[in-house]
Design a protein around this nucleic acid. Structure first.
Lengths: 148, 148
DNA sequence: CAAAATTAAATTGCACACAACTTAATTAGA
DNA sequence: TCTAATTAAGTTGTGTGCAATTTAATTTTG
């Protein structure tokens, strides 16, 4: 009974640990690009879309303005993005890539394979893991909708 | 080629997201106990061991003194733990549970099942996920040892 | 035994992450 | 239409998480 509280029994601790560990593997690779992991996520959104609002980025990455506003200011300071108020709706801030930010994509394309080299995990296990997490997240969302 | 950088293709984003999401599910449950998730992890270590050094807790949870020292001071302030220098080795700080911290275990024992109720994920999927992450972490460690 | 190396915590500084709140702009509705 | 509700970002405050450094104590070694 009481050993339900043992860390090993818990479902979340390994995931919490694994997430931290992955980010630690990214750190040295991203340092070369002058990016942190969350900044890298934002850049990936922009490399896909060229231009996004703070809201859109937040929805995509599950981050709120309290996290994104200062993060985007840091990316602006580094010269990777531009922030400017929408003319149509003054509440909205549009984030777009600078030349420098666009060019960074080339270097970033090498990151995924570098990561796999460094992490030394079985590629097949990772694929299975990814599918399973997708499934769990998808099912969870579906179950939540049942409440309404 | 270039779509290797799409967020969906990456292995890490779902894990990063899932880890955050789990902690968000814990938040309201742990708020009743006046604990954050990392504080809850530390308390779990102590509920198992009664007394640990900062180092031991850090090894168990993969956290360094830069994270633990202020966290433990907050737990001390809440009256859940006591911190005192070892007499044998003055460098070491021993962390032990107060009465209040020990008593908190009863309430904490309800957390795991509450979490499962709230999260609405398939129990079987979670078990598979846990096993797989354990396997990946274990293999990774084994592979790293090969380097020496 | 004394200097050098190692070790354990603490400190400093930076960057998330999120709750709660504020401000300004837009939309909805009586 | 004009006020009330909603929305988008920003701000403030707290708590991690980690790199880099510091301080003090203990070991190791010459």
């Amino acid at each position: 009974m009481t050993d339900q509280l043992r860390i090993e029994k818990q479902l979340c601790f390994p995931i919490y640990l694994f997430a931290k560990e992955i980010i630690n593997y990214y750190r040295p690779l991203l340092k070369d690009l002058e990016l942190t992991y969350p900044q890298y996520l934002v850049m990936m959104v922009l490399w896909e879309n060229k231009k996004s609002t703070v809201n859109e980025i937040g929805e995509r990455l599950s981050l709120d303005s309290g996290t994104l506003t200062p993060l985007l200011k840091r990316l602006e300071k580094k010269g990777f993005v531009e922030r400017q108020r929408s003319e149509k709706d003054e509440r909205v801030v549009e984030i777009s890539l600078t030349h420098c930010g666009s060019n960074l994509k080339k270097a970033a394309e090498k990151v995924p394979e570098q990561l796999i080299d460094i992490m030394k995990v079985d590629q097949e296990d990772l694929e299975t893991l990814k599918h399973l997490i997708h499934k769990v997240l998808r099912n969870k969302n579906a179950n939540e909708l049942d409440d309404y």
